[in-house]
Design a protein around this nucleic acid. Sequence first.
DNA 1: CCAGACGTTGTT
DNA 2: GTCTGG
DNA 3: CCAGACGTTGTT
DNA 4: GTCTGG
Length: 224
Amino acid sequence: MCGRMVLTRSASEIADAFELEMVVELSASYNIAPGRPIAAIRLGPGRARQLSLLHWGLVPAWAKERSIGNRLINARSETAAQKPSFRSALASRRCIVPADGFYEWSGTGRGRRVPHLFRRRDGGLLAIAGLWEEWRDRASDERLLSCTLLTTEANAAVRPVHDRMPVLLEPTDFESWLDPERVAAQEAARLLVPSAPDRLERVLVSQHVNDPRNDDASCIAPVG
DNA sequence: CCAGACGTTGTT
DNA sequence: GTCTGG
DNA sequence: CCAGACGTTGTT
DNA sequence: GTCTGG
C-alpha cells in the first residue's frame, strides 16, 4: 500500500512549509521506492526541525542484517506500539515524511498494476507520519539511519483503490508528533487516524511508474 | 530454559 | 510461490 | 509498491 | 532488545 512516493519540491519550499531550521539539498523524485533514500523531518538539538535523507525500510538497532529493513517499510499504526520492531521508535524516534503525493495500485491478482496518484487538491505538501532508527553494522561499524511509514485504514478518497493508506498529519499536530517529550507514544497514537478525504484528489497515471527505475515527470502525468 | 522471530501487503 | 532489489 | 530472480562452478 | 513457541 504505502509503497511509492513523490517529492519534487525544492528543499527551500519544504523548509517554508515545515518551518525547518536545517535543510539538506534534494533532487526531485517522481518515484521514490522502498530501499531508497527518502527525505524526513526530525527534531535535532534544541528541538530544531531538521531535514535529512533516511533509508526507507526500518532497520531496528538490534538487527544483525540490514536486509531486515526490506520488510519493515510500513508499520500499522493500530499495532505499532506492541511490535518489538517499532515500539521503541514510536516512543522516542518519530519523523514526518514530506510528499507531493503517494501511489496506490488497483486491479486484482496479477492485474493489480493500475497506478493512481493521490495528492492534495490545493497543491500543498502532504505530511506522512513515520518512525526512524539508527543501526550500526557490527562488521563495518557503519551507521545507517532508516525509517518506516505508518499506515491506517483508507479514507473515502483512497478506499476505491485500496483499504490502507499512509497516516497524514495536520500542521497543528506536527510539533506534538515530533516531540516525544511533549507527547508520549500512547497519546501520539491519537494523531494516527484516517484523515479527511476531501483534501485529496486521485489521478490515474500510466504504468510507466510501475518500474521503480522510471523517475521522471511522466510518472505523474494524468492518463485517460 | 534456549532458539528464533521480530512486518505489511495482498492473494487464494 | 517467495524473496530481493530498486 | 512492482519487477525480476529464483544456482553453481570456475573464470576474468 | 524483547517476545513467542517449543
